[in-house]
Design a protein around this nucleic acid. Sequence first.
DNA 1: TATTTCCGTGTGTACGTCCACAAATATATT
DNA 2: AATATATTTGTGGACGTACACACGGAAATA
Lengths: 356, 356
Amino acid sequence: MAKKIRISDIARTAGVSPGTVDRVIHNRGRVSPAARESVEKALAKLDYRPNIHISAISLRKKYRIVVTTPQFSAGEYWSIIHKGVQRAVREFDSLDIECKVLCYDQFDLFSCRSTFEQAAKLNADAVIIGATFRDETVVLTNHLEDNNIPYVYVDSMVEGTYPLAFFSSDHYTCGRLIGKLITGICPSDSSFVLFQAVRTGDASANTTILRKKGFMDFCHEKGIAESVIRAPFSVTEPEKNKELIGNLFARHPEAKGAIVLSSRGNVIAEYLRTHGVGGVRIVGIDLTDGNMEAIGSGRIDFVVGQRPEQQGFMAVKALIQKMVYGRAPKSENYLPMDIITRENAAYYCEFADTTI
Amino acid sequence: MAKKIRISDIARTAGVSPGTVDRVIHNRGRVSPAARESVEKALAKLDYRPNIHISAISLRKKYRIVVTTPQFSAGEYWSIIHKGVQRAVREFDSLDIECKVLCYDQFDLFSCRSTFEQAAKLNADAVIIGATFRDETVVLTNHLEDNNIPYVYVDSMVEGTYPLAFFSSDHYTCGRLIGKLITGICPSDSSFVLFQAVRTGDASANTTILRKKGFMDFCHEKGIAESVIRAPFSVTEPEKNKELIGNLFARHPEAKGAIVLSSRGNVIAEYLRTHGVGGVRIVGIDLTDGNMEAIGSGRIDFVVGQRPEQQGFMAVKALIQKMVYGRAPKSENYLPMDIITRENAAYYCEFADTTI
DNA sequence: TATTTCCGTGTGTACGTCCACAAATATATT
DNA sequence: AATATATTTGTGGACGTACACACGGAAATA
């Protein structure tokens, strides 16, 4: 490999001092047009890449990152995203990163609104957003853009906003994949129950809408859209499910498949178990503790995993890359959709801590 | 977060100079028992973690890593492992890592032997091994252990050796998973052809043995072991396949599934296509370019992915962690087995470059 | 022309660790 | 006891970047 180029090499080539080169590189002004041009020419010729280790230590700054997502309990989807964030902060611990977490109730639009207002007020150096409600998110991102605060999305992207990057599944294709999985394990004359969590406020979660579209498109193409039955269920008040779901499966004995387009498939699995509904295959989303258990016991057949740990990690890494090293990270990041079943589930669990 | 502890803090607490603390930390001797104890006590009390950025720059050493694996062409399994290695070297480019690649013919034991001899002679600072033949690998690792050269495995672990770490699939469970996948998509009265690549020399690849065991155990448990038909095929000389496979599927019209326990499933897919054998589902291993194409065109139904890119990356990272920062990485690293099918394949391809 | 203001440029310091080397102390030898 | 030798300990330089600051000269103002 060629010898490393340092700032002093650029300076010598350009016929200026290292300080001037530094000003050019960091766009800090106070440079004459002639000097700037000379430095830029040298830069182009010599392929200078700063030593990131030394950059990091010389730039003695405290980075305040705000992470705002739905609330979570241990082992739930969002908790794994936060775990990835924490691991990144730990790995970059020579950087003095302060991480403030603000959570809202993802089933309550108004909670989201006030939490995002609070997040905006903090004037952090960077923000990680786990979005649920579109309009409230746009209010937040407008504020961030006005103040030149970089932000990234985890879990899902909100169209019409301009984040530094996003890290999410392709939810539409996820819906299609779920269609393939559930139809693969059910008899060909089966019908399918599509469960959807009820929310307070009048907006549905964006991810769910996209997945539903993917799923329904798949069903239309296969000519089985007619055999999809929609049903609501409650995550926050499971006692209401008796009323919401009722004797659905008794009325539809041909329904041999259930699809849950959120991470709460285990709630449905539990409902079916306690209500003595048998022979129904379930496909869900995310390897939460609850789903893990239901997969192990065979009550859920497949879940599609979204690599939440990696999303959190990469979100922090992207922000650091921008703030510390001035490099724009790759902006569109669709993570692979992992098909998780009894045989390979354990490896996804264990590996969460280890990834890079 | 608490204030960062530096070496000088330890030194003050222990009542010695920073130089002495450094000697204790790096086990460089020349320290009196009294001083050592005092420093160790301070270290235990204060939770000192060195600033890795500064460690990295102060330690001005050239690291010579040897990577020895089977030969590969672009888009094949091993090429993706090497891609991960290269990405790691690039990410750590402030570290002056020199990476020497030595490849052998994985279908020829003798080629492996001489390549490993060569690798041993180089006396590198660390070695990454992609093992195929057990005995030859042990000769190499014995030499490395004698010379205190850290080494890690990618793709598979060789029992009875003591690497710093390994990064591989759980091949046994991989075989079971393949069993689940192929039986899930074939009629219940189907039989299954188990294809295995022929090799020069008398040893089978370790990974294949493990996968076969997992697959057969699965079949025994399901009571379908009798319907497994074994067949050899050649990767290096595909023209021999006409002779090796012959009219196997004509003689076994009930055989509706084919399993390939190496990454060359596309060779079988191609054979079936050109010989007009239809209606046979194929499950294979690894998202190589060849398999990718066969998945896209529907000739292969599933492959199980082993995250080769990540294996290569993590191997380098583990060695660096050891050599530069003196930290022992996690040693047993079983990566998740990804179930890849038409719907999610693209995301695994694209994502290879991006991970972390 | 004398003085102030402003802009462009170079210089020097800090960051925390690693390690070479010098200094100091302990131990061995005559 | 004096000197030689071995062992332990402290000191200071180097790593390459970022940025504060000071200095010089040109332009602006009086």
